[in-house]
Design a protein around this nucleic acid. Sequence first.
DNA 1: CGTACATATTTACACCGTAAGTTGGACTTG
DNA 2: CAAGTCCAACTTACGGTGTAAATATGTACG
Lengths: 234, 234
Amino acid sequence: MTDTAQTAAATRPLSRGRIGEAAVAVADAEGIGAVSMRRIGQELGVEAMSLYNHVANKDAMLDAMVELVAAQLIAGTSSLDAPDPATDWRGALRARALAAREVMLRHRWAPGVLQTRTAMNLDLVRYYDGVVGVLRAGGFSNDLAHHSLHALGSRVVGFSQELFDPGAAADDASEEMLEAMAEHVPHLVGMLAEVAHDDPASTLGWCDDQSEFEFGLDVLLEGLERRRASTVVP
Amino acid sequence: MTDTAQTAAATRPLSRGRIGEAAVAVADAEGIGAVSMRRIGQELGVEAMSLYNHVANKDAMLDAMVELVAAQLIAGTSSLDAPDPATDWRGALRARALAAREVMLRHRWAPGVLQTRTAMNLDLVRYYDGVVGVLRAGGFSNDLAHHSLHALGSRVVGFSQELFDPGAAADDASEEMLEAMAEHVPHLVGMLAEVAHDDPASTLGWCDDQSEFEFGLDVLLEGLERRRASTVVP
DNA sequence: CGTACATATTTACACCGTAAGTTGGACTTG
DNA sequence: CAAGTCCAACTTACGGTGTAAATATGTACG
């Protein structure tokens, strides 16, 4: 058994990068809950404690994971033929957000992990810097760019948190449950009924995540444009 | 020992509600990480396993916790003299969001827990129903109300996720780190410098959460109002 | 060659959620 | 009153977690 471990280690020596890759692969395939030191070690043909030679602790391993995602984020937006921010900052920023969203959809665990991370990651900060660059090129003051960053929030990195997933919740109880609570939530029931009726394709998983994301993004972009336009003297 | 446990149980018998209250109190005081079955049991003078008589598992205990928060949410918005939605839906909704925010600020663990919860909670759904009610009274179609719910996202329940807390991150490295990465993130550094200069009160914890929250909320409310107004025939 | 160094392993500990079985007191019922 | 039932609380145990500390093992260099 020592044999296999040795050969595995000799083949490609352990490293922070390889640990991060393995962890990302496991998280992609089985969710973030499957990511443990023992499991990642096993994935690399190595004992759990060996990981600590390249990674301070589990938190640092999670940092390595977001590092890889952040790298994909800037990679995905650099190889992007988006509108020129100087003439169309909205188009440029929109393209960035949608490109970022594709990265996040490949790593569904990432939003949750990102929110728990307090440590700065250089690539992630660089991504934000790019966003600020777009805003500045589009004519935003530093102050308005700052507010805009807050207002857009996680949308600039490609996701907007949903408080709960109505589709998943609808799976178990669905119709029966809605009837039961109909008297308590008349407005919601009415809204759902009409929305579902207008678009029968979505039975009870009635929310098209992608278009809802774009709707919210566009509302924000429009409102920010109005504020930007009102700060330039006529 | 059996004595004290019995008297404690006899004084006020264990219940789902009491368990939730104890868990909320612990989470408020020491963070959600301190909430474990053993700890909550200890808090109630009872062994951990006794909790399972009133709560299916830890997940159900977390559900009980959000139940209490949701109750505070509807309680806080019902006893609220907000504008009449029919004449000022924006003011009505804004008041709701800010009232909800106060609840969330009392329970800083709640946003994180809410996002992991998939089960529907009646009070929470009722709160959302109230939001839809405001929008409908304000002249929104069901379809637009639906989109608006998505666009506003967690803001209607009083918080907007921040990807990371710049204030916390700035604590350790701060100036030195900013200089080191200045060449990689010129726009960000420039923005921070100017924002910090304009408002010296906030040294490097440069973000006023409350006003940023309101800024984003107002941008959204404005954009939604424009869409609503454009759907009514002139 | 011998020694130092880096890496991987082993062992151990404290914590977690919870399945299973046991106790003991408070009711209901004959 | 006695017997039976019930149920909330307790005890024990198991497999999982992250990780500190000590140990083995290879590789590189003076």
